[in-house]
Amino acid sequence: MTKPRVRWHIAVFLAPAVLIYSAVMIFPLFNTLRLALYSRVDQERIFTGLDNFRTLFFDPIWAEQFWNALGNNFWFFLVHMLVQNPIGIALAAILSHPRLRFAALYRSAIFIPTILSFVIIGFAWKLILSPIWGIAPSMLDAVGLKSLFAPWLGKEEYALTTLALISVWQFVGIPMMLIYAALLSIPEEILEAGEIDGITGLAAFWKIKLPLILPSIGIISILTFVGNFNAFDLIYASQGALAGPDYSTDILGTFMYRTFFGFQLQLGDPHMGSAIAGAMFAIILVGVCIYLFGIQTRMRRYQL
């Protein structure tokens, strides 16, 4: 009996990815979690266990900021789920219509903002919405709706929703593309079979296409969730690290940045910052788990 051959090539082929991924992702992740268990007292780093987390969740000053950021983050996510994804699906459905002309042009035009830098998006929209130089007030004026204009980015009650909608505008191309690809992969025969049974037009979308693209919608939801709870750039580029006005646009990312690196006279505190990063990690992990075990396993799949 011969010994089974050691299949070296598997290790060799896996090695580059495993090494690089461990070095730039796994190691920093666990090191950050470890950092959250320490604190700096008089120039010395000491182990304090879960003390930083206790401060974060139960100290009134920290807890208020944390829950405020978390609440804002959920609102940010909700706006994306309710606006970005339905619009993305609708756009994909329209684009996949066989008789639509210039479909490629629309597709590119809608997708382009996704590849722009956050800084460009932030500044461009800040200028568009500026009450002084912006084109938004004059455009509204031209149609006689000047009274509807408000300095949205400067008002506590509108700022976060405005930024969420800017982000929706930027990223609506992603759900559109994913759904578009899923729609294209639906075989013609199924639709034709439906047609013979009298299901056409809108009914075909609801009864045949939508159930078939549900797995893609699930993927998009989870991508949106992870993306939103890691968001930082747009808020930072347009409102600064203090996420004004009055912390109304503060999300976990900006809160973590401010704490970790410090801001103006506030000196950075890497340990509390890591604790916030740890909390963000836990929230995302829980969200993804709920999706994976609670939703994805129950989703019905159809053999095409």
Binding site: K126, S130, P131, I132, W133, P137, P151, G154, K155
Partner: peptide, 16 residues
């Protein structure tokens, strides 16, 4: 302060 000062930034003020 000018109209919409709530959304007026530092460079805006300088330019005004």
């Amino acid at each position: 302060l000018g109209d919409g000062y709530e959304a007026q930034t530092y460079p805006d003020s300088q330019n005004l």
